[in-house]
Every structure is written in structure tokens, then in C-alpha cells.
């Protein structure tokens, strides 16, 4: 493991991001060469094997969460990277940015409780055949914290049916534990191409036993594995 080559992963820092350091630390702990990248950069580093948009409150959540961050200079290159098949993970605010940017379906709305939800949630892994869940076993239940005010994923009936039919709902809150009113208990959505994934729970806060759970490492570790394969495919 320690001898495995370390894939370069860029963690984008927007004004108001606050989970960028935890995300960087977690990815490095799991064998990546992660570094933070200021949102004002025009380009991703040439050796980028994956991009993570971290949690936080980019641009103060003004207008709608993620609505303004998607116009940050670096986002143009992130969208290009994603459209070319590059691995992109959005956590919480990052998920909101990815939906606003049109890279993932649906939208994140205010929690139906109107309360900020900060708690461990139980998650059902619906797909284990993706770059973000390959370390999970079918039927796995993960314990990972959420902390958001706008985590209620929404899609109209047609869009939801389409997403369900295409198998894009990769992660759900366990039955009866949905903390925010998300439609169909959706906690995480993957793109049709399988290279873009967004989730509201914070895997970077569940990578060490001292944090109460290491289940987040299954998500981030899967990404590190996939990024390594992408970066060193010919090695």
C-alpha cells in the first residue's frame, strides 16, 4: 500500500470552503498526493487524476448554495475535465456546486425540517461498481456524518424516474433515517458516465476510529484507487 504510486488529487478551495483541509488530509492518509487548489486558478495541474469539491459555504451560500461558485475561474477547467471522463467528487457544498453546474442531476434544497442537520447517518450503498464505491460491499450500511442546512435533494417525477432507471442513485439514507426530506432518500448521485459523484454526507469526517467511524474511507479510498488506475494505467 505504502509503495503504491500516489495519484495527484486537487481539492478546490472556494471562498467559504471549510472542509478542504480535512479532505486533503484524509486523501493523503489514504495514499493520494492531494493538494489544495485556489478557485481563482484557470487550470487544473496537468497531472491531476481526480478533483474534489469540498464542503463549506462557498460565497456565503448567497442566492442558492453553489450557484455562484460554479462561475469560479477554475470551474471551466473542472467541467472540461469531467466532460473528458475525469473523476470529480463533490461533498456537501461540492455536491451543490456540481448540480448547479449541470454535471449532476437534481438540486439541493433547504432541509424540510428547516433545521441545520448535524448527525451521523446510516447510508445504504446502492452501487458498488463505481469509482467512488468500489471498496464497498453490496448491501453495505455506512455510518457517515451529515452537516448541512440545504441537503434535501430534489428532482421532479420525470427526472427522478430517469435517474432511477439509469441507476444514478448510488447512495441512500437508510429507510426511516432520512434527515432532510430528500426525495427517494437520495444521499448521493452519480453521473451517467460514472465519473462524477456528489454526496451530502462527509466521508472526510469518518476516516479514523477516533472520529467514531472509518466508513468514509470506503468512499475516499475507492476514489484514490480509481485515481491511481487513471493516473498510472500504463505503468
Amino acid at each position: 500500500m505504502s509503495d503504491a504510486p500516489k495519484p495527484a488529487i486537487s481539492v478546490v478551495v472556494f471562498p467559504g470552503s471549510n472542509d478542504d483541509r480535512d479532505t486533503e488530509l484524509s486523501l493523503n492518509h489514504l495514499g493520494a498526493d492531494a493538494s489544495r487548489l485556489w478557485h481563482g486558478e484557470e487550470r487544473l495541474p496537468a497531472n491531476t487524476a481526480a478533483v474534489v469539491l469540498p464542503g463549506g459555504f462557498s460565497y456565503g451560500d448567497y442566492l442558492r448554495c453553489g450557484a455562484i461558485a460554479r462561475f469560479s475561474p477554475v470551474m471551466r477547467d473542472v467541467v472540461r475535465f469531467a466532460n473528458e471522463g475525469g473523476l470529480v467528487l463533490g461533498i456537501c457544498n461540492g455536491f451543490q456546486i456540481l448540480t448547479e453546474a449541470g454535471l449532476l442531476p437534481g438540486v439541493l434544497r433547504q432541509n424540510s425540517t428547516l433545521e441545520f442537520q448535524c448527525q451521523d447517518v446510516s447510508l445504504v450503498v446502492e452501487r458498488t461498481d463505481t469509482a467512488f464505491t468500489s471498496r464497498c460491499e453490496p448491501g453495505d450500511r455506512l455510518s457517515i456524518p451529515v452537516k448541512n442546512g440545504e441537503g434535501c435533494w430534489f428532482a421532479d417525477p420525470e427526472l427522478l424516474a430517469e435517474a432511477e432507471a439509469e441507476g444514478l442513485i448510488a447512495l441512500r439514507y437508510a429507510p426511516g433515517t432520512n434527515p432532510n426530506g430528500a426525495i427517494a432518500d437520495v444521499a448521493g448521485v452519480i453521473s451517467a458516465g460514472g465519473n462524477v459523484f456528489g454526496l451530502m454526507p462527509h466521508p472526510e469526517h469518518a476516516v479514523d476510529p477516533v472520529l467514531g467511524s472509518t466508513d468514509g474511507a470506503k468512499i475516499l479510498g475507492s476514489l484514490v484507487d480509481a485515481a491511481r488506475s487513471a493516473a498510472f494505467a500504463t505503468a
Binding site: L63, R64, A67, I68, F71, E100, G106, V107, R109, F154, A155, D156, L159
Partner: peptide, 8 residues
């Protein structure tokens, strides 16, 4: 493009 999200 920005001010409203047509989904909601």
C-alpha cells in the same frame, strides 16, 4: 443562467 433554478 443564474437568478433562478428552473427545477424548483
Amino acid at each position: 443562467q443564474l437568478l433562478a433554478n428552473p427545477l424548483i
